Amino acid sequence: MSPSESKDTNNVAIIGAGPAGLMAAETLAQCGVKVTVFDAMPSIGRKLLMAGRGGLNLTHSEPLDAFLPRYREAAPKLAAVVEAFPPERLRAWCEELGQPTFVGSSGRIFPKVLKASPLLRAWLRRLDVSGVKFGLRHRWTGWDNEGRLLFQTLEGE
């Protein structure tokens, strides 16, 4: 990112290409913000793909008043977030990506294909169409004296 871009409030850098970073990028891009997602790893969504090895349990189908206490002591802090993006909304988001879900016998919700890779590929296509850019193998190391982001890359700092 050039110094002029770093001062433009319509440009945002997100550190981390995991599910939270990707969701932040999608949300901001839908609002017209130019987003670049940086990650130290050479690929996107690695932990999501690892979770997909077990079928990718996305969420649970139970009512929120039963679901939220599963977060134990963190429940009060997470309640507003979960209420803003409840399991039904997550399922609708998956459907929008062409990845239908189902409720298993345990009440857990999974993608019908029981894999993470189709969901991640569809999500990355949506991000690409939205103009989201990626800087992989960019380990964020802090800021310089002018407030610009610093990264360690294969080419150096």
Rank of each mutant, 00 (worst) to 15 (best):
36 T>M: 12
39 D>I: 05
30 Q>D: 10
77 K>H: 14
112 K>R: 12
108 R>K: 13
29 A>M: 07
115 K>S: 02
97 L>Y: 12
43 S>I: 06
31 C>Q: 15
76 P>Y: 08
85 F>Y: 13
105 S>M: 05
28 L>G: 08
57 N>W: 13
32 G>L: 05
50 M>T: 14
88 E>F: 05
89 R>K: 15
88 E>M: 06
116 A>Q: 05
99 Q>P: 00
113 V>I: 02
58 L>C: 10
112 K>E: 14
36 T>Y: 02
117 S>W: 09
77 K>R: 11
114 L>A: 07
77 K>D: 09
67 F>W: 13
29 A>S: 10
41 M>E: 15
101 T>F: 05
113 V>S: 12
71 Y>L: 11
53 R>D: 05
113 V>Q: 13
60 H>S: 10
102 F>R: 03
70 R>A: 07
46 R>K: 15
87 P>K: 01
37 V>I: 08
106 S>W: 00
111 P>I: 04
57 N>K: 11
90 L>W: 07
59 T>R: 10
69 P>Q: 09
112 K>W: 06
115 K>D: 02
85 F>N: 14
64 L>W: 12
112 K>N: 01
104 G>T: 00
68 L>A: 04
66 A>H: 15
106 S>P: 07
93 W>I: 00
83 E>P: 05
49 L>G: 05
98 G>D: 03
69 P>W: 11
74 A>C: 03
115 K>H: 11
45 G>K: 07
37 V>P: 06
99 Q>T: 00
40 A>W: 06
82 V>S: 03
72 R>E: 14
78 L>C: 04
106 S>G: 01
29 A>R: 03
45 G>L: 05
109 I>N: 03
27 T>C: 10
108 R>P: 03
75 A>D: 07
62 E>S: 11
106 S>C: 02
78 L>P: 08
38 F>I: 01
116 A>P: 02
76 P>N: 09
65 D>N: 15
49 L>R: 12
89 R>M: 10
35 V>N: 06
93 W>S: 08
50 M>G: 06
83 E>F: 02
92 A>Y: 04
84 A>Q: 13
33 V>M: 06
